[in-house]
């Protein structure tokens, strides 16, 4: 009996957690007429996809997804490469003052973007990178790599030195050691970092909001956020827009679920 009521409570809470998702999905596939007669809580009388399709074409949502994808994928790859090179130099090359360099990297990652945004905005305008994807890619690559360097140098610090020494003895240069020995062995950690960088960059909002003012350059979160309150955003169109924001995020989660649950404790350091 006690277990029974506990389960009821747990599933009620779960229902409350997913209630917004359900309500948004219900109304995204409801016709405006159906909505105005039956309200938000009724099941759609028939599946109506015109709201979703109209919204998609009206804001060219495919383009927004592509923008988000382009920025996030570039950042993920570049930031992993940069993190590996930095961490290799710091962790195995043992440069002087490495602890301070690491602390600096960690502080760099915890600083609020608000304290960087205006100078970045100003500099980007000076060099003609304002309102470009390139500016976003450069900035987020550095921000993510700061975290990646910090994390990887801890991992590489424990790397078996015998392996490296053996490879050097065979005449391998530092770069060959990195590519042939260190990278293949650290592959699982690098995969986790790659996926995290991709998703973190996809989810970014503050800097893209400021840097991507042209409509055709905007990312998914920015475009959805600035569209709220537009005249054409009636109840069903708004819920369609929310659903389109939810879907890619849930797809990534399902695709990467295993890596994410393994890596979430790694990400906790962030």
């Amino acid at each position: 009996m006690r277990r029974g009521s506990l389960m009821v409570a747990l599933f009620t809470l779960a229902g409350a957690m997913i209630f917004p998702f359900v309500l948004v999905a219900l109304n995204a596939v409801k016709s405006p007429a159906d909505y105005s007669t039956n309200g938000p809580f009724s099941l759609p009388s028939e599946l109506y996809f015109k709201g979703l399709v109209d919204f998609w074409f009206r804001v060219d949502f495919g383009e927004k997804i592509w923008n988000s994808f382009l920025i996030s994928a570039s950042v993920a790859v570049l930031a992993v490469v940069l993190s590996v090179l930095n961490a290799y130099a710091l962790g195995i090359g043992r440069i002087k003052g490495r602890l301070w360099v690491l602390v600096l990297f960690l502080v760099g990652n915890t600083l609020p973007q608000e304290a960087l945004v205006f100078p970045l905005f100003y500099l980007a305008r000076e060099v003609g990178l304002y309102d470009t994807h390139l500016a976003m890619i450069i900035i987020f690559t550095v921000v993510q790599a700061a975290f990646g360097t910090y994390l990887l140098s801890a991992v590489l610090g424990q790397f078996p030195r015998e392996l490296i020494e053996a490879a050097s003895m065979d005449g391998a240069g530092r770069f060959t050691v990195l590519m042939r020995v260190v990278v293949p062995i650290s592959r699982p950690t690098l995969a986790v970092l790659l996926i995290f960088f991709f998703i973190w960059t996809w989810n970014e909002f503050f800097l893209p909001l400021i840097f991507l003012v042209s409509n055709d350059l905007q990312t998914v979160p920015v475009s959805l956020a600035v569209l709220q309150g537009e005249k054409f955003m009636d109840a069903t169109t708004s819920s369609a827009s929310a659903l389109l924001g939810i879907v890619p995020a849930v797809v990534f989660f399902l695709l990467f679920q295993r890596t994410l649950t393994r890596g979430i404790t790694v990400g906790a350091i962030k």
Binding site: F21, F205, L224, A242, A249
Partner: peptide, 29 residues
């Protein structure tokens, strides 16, 4: 249950805001 409780976390926080703005709109949701 863990997956259901975790679901909101997968959203970009701005999109979570969009969802709730719709839910709590004076005329929608």
């Amino acid at each position: 249950l863990r997956a259901l409780y975790y679901l909101p976390q997968v959203l970009p926080v701005a999109v979570a805001g969009v969802v709730w703005r719709w839910m709590l709109h004076p005329e929608h949701g």
